[in-house]
């Protein structure tokens, strides 16, 4: 009687297969149950569901956008504007954080005690305070310290910096003073600036550690060899040390870039209309929490996968070159 079962027990692979099948079945049943349950709940409570709302007019305007956006346009376009805004700030912050991180990482290895101490202090302070607090502090500082739009700073011809943001020549247009502040040309708002500063300042502290570890991983002999060849320390760093360190730095740096993109979701705290901000407003106006949140998650997931793919490609190319 018990023989088939004993046989089954002995057969590790078929047993494993059955277990897996069971797990998969249970997982599917769980998902089905949740979906079914939620649908029923929403229906009995008279709550609208579905993605049809995406094609209705949004009815709110967005302060800054890459695309032209008007309140009469549908929700999906508002979400698109949000995605583009998120991308814009994330990309700018990644570039800035990389530059800053490289400088900080290199500085924390110099002989200048003051400079080294300052870099270490920067890393320790900026890594250990929640980003949300940093963003708010940056924003309040910018809002407090910048001059008003009538008395905008004009460091370069055509470039204005004021409480209304940073205006610069763009697309053949030069900004000039208008009725309410500066008009014309390209412009970024103080919200964008605060977010950019906060994200890149925070990201740079992490990147600095990665850079430091990367450079330290290059054997001392390499530096000496570069010096023996008559290279200046800077040349040695650029031509000998960094290319070797880069290979070790790329995987953790990718992670940091991803984190930075995800951290841009805190934009709503300082009034920048990123994807989360748009989703929040839409959620409030339509009451369709499930739909808005799933769009949000899908977009971030997509961005993460894209970034991972891009750095993976770069990493492979770098490895090929190295050999």
């Amino acid at each position: 009687m018990r023989r088939p079962f004993a046989e089954f027990r002995r057969h590790a692979s078929s047993r494993a297969f059955c277990y897996q099948l069971l797990v998969a079945g249970l997982a599917l049943a769980l998902v089905w149950l949740l979906v079914e349950q939620t649908g029923a709940e929403l229906r009995t409570r008279g709550i609208r569901s579905g993605f049809a709302f995406l094609f209705e007019p949004a009815g709110f305007s967005i302060g800054e956008s890459v695309l032209d956006f008007d309140a009469a346009q549908p929700y999906w376009r508002a979400f698109l504007v949000g995605v583009l805004n998120t991308l814009r700030v994330a990309l700018a912050a990644i570039v800035l954080a990389t530059v800053l991180g490289l400088c900080l990482g290199a500085c924390s290895l110099t002989r200048n005690v003051l400079l080294r101490g300052l870099c270490r202090a920067y890393v320790e302070v900026f890594r250990n305070i929640p980003l949300l607090l940093q963003l708010l502090t940056w924003y309040f500082l910018l809002a407090e310290k910048l001059p008003s739009a009538d008395a905008a700073l004009n460091p370069l011809p055509g470039v204005f910096l004021s409480k209304s943001g940073l205006a610069f020549p763009w697309g053949g247009e030069v900004p000039a003073a208008g009725d309410f502040g500066i008009a014309g040309g390209g412009a970024v708002t103080p919200e964008f600036l605060a977010l950019l500063l906060g994200l890149s300042g925070y990201g740079a502290a992490y990147l600095a550690e990665i850079v430091r570890a990367g450079i330290l991983s290059v054997p001392r002999g390499q530096v000496d060899a570069a010096a023996a060849l008559g290279m200046t320390p800077l040349q040695g760093l650029r031509a000998v040390v960094l290319p070797q360190a880069l290979r070790l730095m790329i995987p953790p740096a990718t992670n940091q870039f991803l984190n930075l993109t995800k951290n841009s979701s805190l934009a709503v705290a300082v009034g920048y209309p990123d994807l989360v901000s748009i989703a929040n407003t839409s959620l409030n106006q339509t009451g369709q929490a499930a739909e808005c949140i799933s769009i949000l998650m899908a977009v971030y997931l997509g961005l993460s996968l894209l970034t991972a793919a891009a750095t993976g490609w770069y990493n492979r190319r770098q490895l090929r070159r190295g050999h």
Partner: peptide, 20 residues
């Protein structure tokens, strides 16, 4: 108009009173 939308009440106030 160009709305500047804040999630928190205090951030929106701070922005206005500082002239943003």
């Amino acid at each position: 108009v160009r709305p500047v939308v804040f999630e928190s009440f205090e951030a929106s106030l701070k922005a206005f009173f500082s002239g943003r």
